[in-house]
Nucleic acid binder design. Structure first.
Length: 691
DNA sequence: GAGTTTGAAACT
DNA sequence: CAGTTTCAAACTC
């Protein structure tokens, strides 16, 4: 393909020179398209001008979330680029299109359905466009003949990885990177993970970063302008340190962001993620800051590759930074609510001990909850390490402990493509991740559009489909449901179960699984729910007063109830609810119901210095937000005061029992990293209040 | 690990 | 809305 000499056309000035060249004029005279292309490129340049080439290159460090950025960032540009370079991109795009067609095909039915409804077809089409444009954009970015992205070629030249990567499709790379990240996650020393966690604490800094986007871009630009190795190093380190500075963004700024949540798009990652109208400024700012964050990582990689010849340790560090960057930017374009909330939770007052405990290889608290659950009678294991999980019966434990996303749902879907509520991950609003054994899974970030659209459809059928299934009340909410006996945490399954043969004593029963008693709304037969029978009977002993006392810290304390019960009543013939699987789901749904509150608390938390030893200001923030939600923001039964949503998080009791502090941040970080919060789906929730 | 049971979700 | 089918988790062996 006739591409200009890429070395000549790096920055804008070079581009101008190039356009002034006789060759260009000749080409220009031959093809009016070329002229248009140039102009488009200029337009594009306004947003991409100072982007690092590497930031546009779908390199490993960019990982799975890259496409998301393109969804809201580069789409306009991709169109412009695409129009001008269709021929250039077509080759690469064809491959990608095959994959895009994959979910295009899947979307076919959805599309038709939407068309029939005549409501969201346009939106869907847009999403379809995005789905196909994104890969093209990626491809284009890497091979752009426009000199702007010089280093796109530079990186592959300098890194064998880059060369190999470039030969594969962006989707393939993205997918592989997801896997790589999982791999790294497992194999990296825990110490490194600690650093990662600490750095990832700034996950919600995207908004804050927007304010300094220009500085970022300058830094990144310097990196590429500088040919001197030392200078490059300086620039890199400077940029990196700048990141650190950013990561320590003061609290008040975050509060400002929170205050500006609705008004200032740049302050709301969600809004960008939501796919709803976002201002150009927000897009550009956000994208710029995000991209430039990537630049830092990339430049670091280049330095390592060039000067240390792919030193492995450097790669590890780079790997960490990569993940942190991906992690950091996640909120901007595809977070998972569950992850968000977990992060908030993760920055609980005890998170200050993350490093030390991680170094000791101790089990995070939320993972300890898993241990507690699975070995309820061996509290000694609470502070145990992985050596405790070698026995076959503890396979699952070990699995969950080894896997950082301990509390994440996993599915094994074979036919639903993980796009139905059958899929636990999907139902919980989670993307499927590596531990899932699902087949033909579409519930992945790369199929974000499919996922979101499917969610929309399901929600259109049942607005509460993704809402928390369990509600909790301190007063008359349950009475309104015909429930009079206050059972554990006064929580009830919203819809009730329909058990016929399990007597509501197994996890087949949703009520039981959720750790709540059956209510009159249940249609179960022979209910023997140990958490509370439908007929009002009580199989197990609970301290109602204590339970009510937990209302203050509902999300934290519920599991205490459950685990406490289990520990205090080991005679129960059935295991306690699977706590390890609940927190994400419930928190996620909780977040979906109270996005503002969650966001606020997150912002509050994120204001915390990464690795800060004092996160006390964070955790209460979450709680206060969760419990101080304005009634106007409680879509479900807003008229009922005291209504809270049951969350089944980690065991506070474990916290107390354990000698090691709570480490929810570990799983939080992982969850954040490995799954994207579907904030976009939050606003898709229809008003749940009665019309 | 394979097969069975179960009940929710989806479909008609 | 009820009946049926599909589905995947839970469970059993």
């Amino acid at each position: 393909m006739d591409t200009p000499d890429k070395t000549q056309i790096t920055p804008t000035s070079n581009l101008s020179k190039f356009e002034d060249s006789p060759v260009f004029k000749y080409i220009d005279s031959l093809s009016p398209i070329e002229l248009a292309k140039s102009k488009q490129a200029d337009n594009v340049f306004s947003s991409l001008a100072f982007l690092s080439p590497s930031s546009l290159f779908p390199s490993p460090q960019i990982g799975c979330h890259r496409e998301s950025r393109h969804h809201f960032l580069s789409l306009s540009t991709s169109k412009a680029l695409q129009s001008g370079h269709e021929s250039n991109a077509s080759e690469g795009a064809s491959k990608v299109d095959e994959q895009s067609d994959m979910y295009d095909e899947h979307l076919g039915c959805l599309k038709n359905d939407c068309s029939s409804k005549g409501t969201s077809s346009n939106l869907l089409n847009d999403q379809l466009d995005l789905a196909t444009e994104f890969p093209r954009t990626l491809k284009y970015d890497c091979r752009s003949p426009e000199g702007n992205f010089e280093a796109c070629d530079e990186i592959p030249k300098n890194t064998s990885v880059g060369v190999a990567e470039e030969e594969r499709s962006p989707f393939q790379r993205n997918r592989d990177e997801c896997e790589k990240r999982q791999f790294h996650k497992r194999d990296l020393p825990k110490k490194c993970r600690v650093k990662e966690i600490d750095e990832s604490a700034g996950c919600d800094w995207v908004a804050a970063l927007s304010d300094v986007a220009d500085m970022w871009t300058m830094n990144s630009f310097i990196i590429h302008e500088n040919t001197d190795g030392q200078d490059r190093r300086k620039a890199d380190s400077g940029t990196t340190s700048f990141i650190s500075t950013i990561m320590q963004f003061p609290l008040d700024n975050a509060n400002n962001l929170e205050n500006a949540e609705s008004g200032d798009p740049s302050s709301s990652c969600k809004q960008n993620e939501l796919g709803e109208p976002v201002t150009d400024r927000a897009q550009s700012i956000l994208s710029t800051s995000l991209l430039d964050k990537l630049v830092v990582s990339d430049s670091g990689l280049k330095k390592d590759d060039k000067e240390e010849n792919c030193n492995q340790s450097s790669h590890q560090q780079v790997g960490i930074r990569r993940r942190c960057l991906v992690f950091e930017k996640s909120p901007g374009f595809g977070l998972h609510l569950n992850s968000l909330l977990n992060i908030s939770k993760g920055q609980s007052p005890l998170s200050k001990s993350i490093p030390s405990s991680m170094d000791r290889g101790e089990v995070p608290d939320d993972k300890r909850a898993v241990v507690t659950e699975n070995s309820s009678e061996t509290p000694a294991t609470l502070g145990g390490n992985e050596s405790d999980h070698n026995s076959p019966e503890k396979k699952r434990q070990k699995f969950e402990l080894v896997d950082e996303s301990a509390a994440c749902k996993r599915c094994n879907c074979k036919r639903s493509k993980c796009l139905k509520l059958y899929c636990d991950c999907f139902a919980a609003g989670l993307y499927c991740i590596e531990p899932c054994a699902c087949q033909d899974c579409f519930n992945k970030p790369i199929h974000e559009n499919v996922v979101l659209e499917t969610r929309r459809q399901i929600e259109s059928r049942n607005p509460l489909a993704f809402a928390p299934k369990v509600i909790r009340s301190t007063d008359n909410v349950l009475d309104s449901l015909g429930e009079t006996n206050k059972t554990p945490a006064s929580a009830r399954h919203k819809r009730g179960c329909n058990c016929k043969r399990s007597s509501c004593l197994k996890k087949y029963c949703e009520c039981f699984q959720a750790g709540v008693g059956c209510s009159l709304s249940c249609r179960c037969e022979g209910c023997k729910n140990s958490f509370g029978r439908k007929d009002g009977g009580y199989e197990s002993v609970y301290d109602g007063d204590n339970l009510e006392a937990h209302d203050v810290n509902a999300s934290e304390e519920k599991s205490d109830i459950v685990i406490g019960k289990d520990q205090e009543h080991p005679h129960l013939s059935v295991p306690p609810p699977d706590i390890s699987r609940l927190p994400f789901a419930y928190r996620g749904k909780l977040a979906a119901f109270f996005p503002h509150s969650i966001k606020s608390s997150l912002q509050l938390c994120s204001t915390q210095e990464p690795g800060s030893s004092d996160s006390s200001s964070c955790h209460p923030g979450l709680d206060s937000n969760l419990h101080g939600i304005p009634e106007s923001e409680t879509p479900e039964i807003p008229e009922h005061k005291g209504l809270t949503l049951v969350s089944k998080p980690t065991s506070p009791k474990c916290k107390r029992v354990s000698s090691t502090p709570n480490l929810p941040c570990t799983s939080s970080s992982t969850a954040w990293r490995s799954r994207k919060l579907i904030l976009r789906s939050v606003p898709s929730f229809p008003p749940l209040a009665p019309p």
